[in-house]
Write a protein that binds this DNA or RNA. Sequence first.
DNA 1: ACTTGAAGCTGCCGCTGCGGCAGCTTCTAC
DNA 2: GTAGAAGCTGCCGCAGCGGCAGCTTCAAGT
Lengths: 253, 253
Amino acid sequence: MAWPIAEVARMSGVTARTLRHYDEIGLLPPARIGSNGHRYYEERQLLQLQQILVLRALGVGLSEIARILGDQVDELEALRGHHLRLVAERNRLDSLAATVSRTIADLERSRRDGTPMTSINRPENLFEGIQPADIDESLRDFPEQAEAARRATAAMTPAEIEAGQRERTARMVRLAELLAAGHPADAEPTQHMIDEEYQLLGEIRTVSVEEYLAIARSCTENAQWNAAYEAIAPGLAAYQRAAMEAYAAARLA
Amino acid sequence: MAWPIAEVARMSGVTARTLRHYDEIGLLPPARIGSNGHRYYEERQLLQLQQILVLRALGVGLSEIARILGDQVDELEALRGHHLRLVAERNRLDSLAATVSRTIADLERSRRDGTPMTSINRPENLFEGIQPADIDESLRDFPEQAEAARRATAAMTPAEIEAGQRERTARMVRLAELLAAGHPADAEPTQHMIDEEYQLLGEIRTVSVEEYLAIARSCTENAQWNAAYEAIAPGLAAYQRAAMEAYAAARLA
DNA sequence: ACTTGAAGCTGCCGCTGCGGCAGCTTCTAC
DNA sequence: GTAGAAGCTGCCGCAGCGGCAGCTTCAAGT
């Protein structure tokens, strides 16, 4: 089944102009071009277009999108990745909305009883959730520890890497169970797990308290990590972060 | 307290270059310019910047943002509006993620048992949640009267059309506020708004009671309208419909 | 067979929202 | 007194389309 350009435009919500543009830059050539020069699209193209639009909605540039679609081995895998990133982006909007809520409440209070705005004392609070508009960062790699991690994995066999990933996943699931069971982040069972993690981390490389707290922050702030946690259980990223921060306060002080 | 440009950049996550740009185009002049030409920002500017970034995250153009901030009477009111829109955008991402999930499931099924993709039968399904990338877009297409409307708009300038769309959006947001405030659909404040709408409708063309009820029904039954309402607040479509039906029963009988 | 309105096509120009310089001026801070 | 960080003001450029103009093609009615 082949759809003409206007039909695809209607279905997808983009303009025909845009579709021609995507053809022009080689991002989405039509399945077939009629002898009259008209463009006709088929199912594959629609699926590709979906991916393009999803990535575009995440703020990825067209050239980057082309690269991603280009060296995409398994499209199912790719779709799953996009899904994770979408969830992360949704969570970011959530936190943005929460930030705005806080500002509203703050304004209401200061208007009511004439006190000055308190969030202004920590102006960073005004912008929570806005900062990592950049998704590319999370597509590419992690910050800070990226170097160390890469050096560490470079010396490992694929099997070892896989095993490590499974272990981390298992640990996350156990944490999710603690969360579901209602244990506060600073309670014993959770803190015990966090301590295990800290010991493991120490075997790879020594981290300062600041570094450790930075890692804690990335649990919610790094889109990729956050998505990985949220995919297991909602609120898990924040839970892990809170647990790590409590651990740092209690035992690394 | 006055912050220099780099400090504001750090807190908000935008670059100093961007802040200079915003000054240049008059969108966000600093509170004060030192005798050396350096820019210094205060609390008011930070609050403004927050609003700018929120609106930007919603895809609003800078000129439009300037207009909004310009004729903003009550900033608290404005913030509440932004919050509503943020939540709407988050819901959109949610539905986008759901769409991607469906595609994944569909691909898995067709890969597993060799059946063809079913969602392709209704290719629109592939793009749910993508369409209203622009918030106004979601209000562009009203069906049924689309004919009448189009005939009416044919005689209008683009600026007039745009203004009309903004007005509809504003009206929907106000309705959402009534809903959020807990007013029943058949209570006075809501019915008053519906009456206004009815009068406006009458100016365009006269509708019979049956037609009016048909329009009410399409609020929830027409996918596009429904989506437009739900994008603003969950339950808004049903609320609007109920309000219109109550109005018809009480005053058009 | 002929018109006619809708839908296509190909350029080309223009806009927005910055990023990235270059080239120069301040400011601390040792 | 000089180095290094932080500012400033232009100016150029790029991505991602929107909006034409000018021409062709197609399906449908008469």
